[in-house]
């Protein structure tokens, strides 16, 4: 029953969010700020995680597939496909659900408990639309760039393993990441990431918007936002993969 109630509340909130803003001028003032806060400021963590995962994946693949029957380029190929199909979309989004989800939920939750949202409502502003829409749109716009960036940096991480160690030669690695490349995998990954970006921003906004009580409750709202958006990401991952790859 609680799930049905929460889902209904979420849908009703989205109905208020996904309408034309009261003032486009105000929307376009918020939008670049959100692009910077949610997108550009996530770049450092995307770089750090992608480069290390790319490198580790290359090492693990090479060390666990030391079979002379396997072609030498297979390590590069496996690293590339893992990055393209799962890491740079799903795993990256799970990590960003922690960073961005808690950021959004705590920001909106704090505005709720300090009556700033009530102040907006009393002015006659559609507070849900004013606060949430720029965040959702900005994150959905930025996510494909973050995913492509993560793919590129992850591949560079794998290449660095070839350069700085003798685990794999750079020539084999480069051959592997170019071998049997399927461009549709990138498209699939980007489509998934758009759904995940919407889930992260909207679910976190939902928990923040309905936060109630004090600072402790804002913390609980942040935790709920991260946990539930992560579960939804995993669920939609299966659904979208079945639809697009099956």
């Amino acid at each position: 029953m609680k799930i049905i109630h929460e889902t209904g509340k979420y849908v009703l909130l989205m109905k208020r969010v996904l309408v034309a803003p009261d003032r486009w001028r105000m929307f376009f003032r918020q939008f670049p700020k959100e692009l910077e806060k949610l997108g550009l400021n996530s770049m450092p963590i995307v770089i750090i995680i992608s480069v290390f995962i790319g490198a580790i994946m290359t090492i693990q693949t090479k060390l666990n597939t030391e079979n002379p029957m396997l072609p030498t380029y297979s390590t590069g190929l496996v690293t590339r496909d893992t990055l393209l199909l799962e890491f740079s979309s799903t795993i990256l989004c799970l990590i960003l659900a922690g960073k961005i989800g808690s950021n959004i939920a705590s920001e909106i939750g704090t505005m709720r408990i300090t009556e700033q949202i009530d102040a907006l409502e009393i002015m006659g502003v559609n507070s849900a639309n004013y606060l949430i829409l720029p965040k959702v749109v900005a994150f959905v716009v930025m996510m494909p760039f973050l995913v492509i960036f993560s793919m590129a940096i992850g591949l560079v991480g794998g290449y660095a393993v070839g350069m700085f160690s003798d685990i794999i030669s750079t020539a084999d690695y480069l051959l592997g990441i170019q071998y049997a490349f399927i461009p549709y995998y990138v498209f699939y990954s980007l489509i998934k990431s758009l759904f995940f970006a919407f889930i992260i921003a909207s679910v976190a906004s939902y928990y923040g918007y309905y936060a109630y009580g004090g600072a402790l409750d804002v913390g609980k709202a942040s935790t709920n936002a991260v946990v539930n958006s992560s579960i939804l990401i995993l669920f939609f991952n299966i659904l979208i993969t079945n639809i697009m790859l099956n």
Binding site: T114, A119, I122, M123, G124
Partner: peptide, 14 residues
């Protein structure tokens, strides 16, 4: 509500 002004207990400034 555009005809209404409100002063909140905690000021509620943005």
């Amino acid at each position: 509500r555009r005809e209404v002004g409100m002063l909140f207990q905690g000021s509620a400034l943005f």
